[in-house]
Simulated scan of single mutants.
Amino acid sequence: MHYKLFKNCFLPKLNKSILLAILVFSTLCSCTRHEEEMTCIPVIFDTDAGNDIDDVLAMQMLFNYEKAGKIDLLGITISKSNPYTIEYIDGYCRLNGRNDIPLGYAYNGVNPEDGNYLRQTIDTIIDGNKILFPQRSINNSIPEGYKLLRKMLAAQKDSSVVFIAVGPETNLARLLTSEPDEYSTLNGKSLIARKVKVLSVMAGRFDERVDHPEWNILQDLNAAQTTFKEWPTPIIASGWEIGTSILYPHQSILNDFPDSYKHPLCVSYKIYQRMPYDRETWDLTSVLQAIEPESNYFNLSEKGIITIDSIGQSIFSTSENGKYQYLIMQKEENIQTILKALVNQVTGKK
């Protein structure tokens, strides 16, 4: 009701102090609703950047979501056990204004090799200047990934954290089996159950036409088996077949970034494979689903259980008590809609 009308209708019956109290209460309620609507989604990102270039595209999506006020990126844990990954990610975070973002590392983990673009991008000099400026390295006492995860989760509200994992499940399994510590009196599984809302994971194959195990699963098979057996909250898995069907266009790498010739994402993309090539969007689809589930870019399977067998196959069984689902492509013509959303989010053109 308009204030003037409200005043004319009711002022004779209400003294000014009561009217003022009503107006203050109404304003407070409005502000509270506004704050609730504007609350950022707390997000944790676990990545094996360096094994594939799609991790960098996915990371840029998250930074752009954060710049738009959609998420609060709490920290990044690294599942590739190569020191250059720390430097690369630190430099990339600084590029996006997140100099102090917490980083965790899977010591004695998998994939210790350098990869195709980490060191090469760090060492790249263009126009007489480096393009990445990392300040942290393996020598800076980077915490264990699972310890950082415990610290971050313990500080969050219950059932609030969106956890995105796009590499081997090393840090996740270590978190699950962790004991109470200075951050929480809960063990890992109980801490996850209390704090995590959903795990969006790039893992597995759920297309019956493909009968070989998915790469992330195979890299740390024991960790994958532990994660899918013990994870206590809902899981949304983006299987190999989803990212394979949506290819990120190389034209975007060439044309959509200011000074693309020296942008670290574009340089890394060109180093990773010989151009021109369109890369699968495995990790990007996990990010898109995690942050924009309401957009319904994908269908979801029935709820059930995902089991990882002894050779790494992903086996899904429907179950009334199951909490796990996997993404299903709605129809082929929907690919262009999803691709546009991915490109817009990577490039920040939304």
Score class of each variant (00 low, 15 high):
Ile306Glu: 02
Leu300Asn: 07
Trp240Pro: 00
Leu218Asp: 05
Trp231Gln: 06
Gln251Lys: 15
Ser245Asp: 14
Val267Ser: 04
Pro276His: 06
Gln225Ser: 12
Gln273Ser: 10
Pro293Leu: 03
Ser286Trp: 03
Gln251Ala: 15
Tyr261Arg: 09
Asn299Ser: 14
Leu247Ile: 12
Arg274Gln: 15
Asp283Ile: 00
Leu339Met: 10
Glu208Asn: 15
Asp207Phe: 09
Arg279Phe: 08
Phe228Glu: 04
Gly243Pro: 11
Asp283Leu: 04
Asp220Trp: 04
Asp207Arg: 03
Thr226Ala: 09
Asp259Leu: 11
Asn296Phe: 03
Val201Gly: 00
Ser268Val: 04
Val267Gln: 02
Phe316Ile: 08
Lys340Trp: 00
Gly312Trp: 06
Ala203Pro: 02
Val210Trp: 15
Leu327Lys: 04
His263Cys: 02
Ser319Ile: 05
Leu265Asp: 02
Ile315Tyr: 07
Ile338His: 02
Ile305Asp: 09
Glu332Pro: 00
Gly239Thr: 08
Glu302Asp: 14
Leu218Met: 15
Asn321Ile: 07
Pro232Glu: 07
Ile335Pro: 00
Leu254Met: 13
Leu300Lys: 12
Asn222Trp: 08
Lys229Leu: 14
Asn222Pro: 01
Asp207Glu: 13
Glu280Phe: 07
Val210Arg: 12
Gln345Met: 12
Val267Pro: 01
Tyr277Arg: 12
His250Ile: 06
Glu333Phe: 03
Ile253Thr: 14
Tyr248Met: 11
Met202Arg: 12
Lys262Val: 03
Ile308Cys: 05
Thr285Val: 08
Lys229Met: 11
Ile306Leu: 03
Phe298His: 04
His212Glu: 15
Arg274Ser: 14
Lys331His: 12
Phe298Trp: 13
Ile335Asp: 02
Thr307His: 11
Pro234Glu: 09
Gly243Cys: 10
Trp240Ser: 14
Thr233Pro: 01
Asp207Leu: 11
Gln345Ser: 11
Tyr248Gln: 09
Asn216Gln: 15
Thr285His: 12
Ala203Asp: 12
Ile338Leu: 00
Pro249His: 11
Ser286Met: 05
Leu221Cys: 08
Asp309Cys: 06
Asn344Gln: 15
Cys266His: 03
Pro258His: 09
Leu300Asp: 09
Glu214Gln: 14
His212Thr: 15
Gln219Cys: 11
Ile308Thr: 01
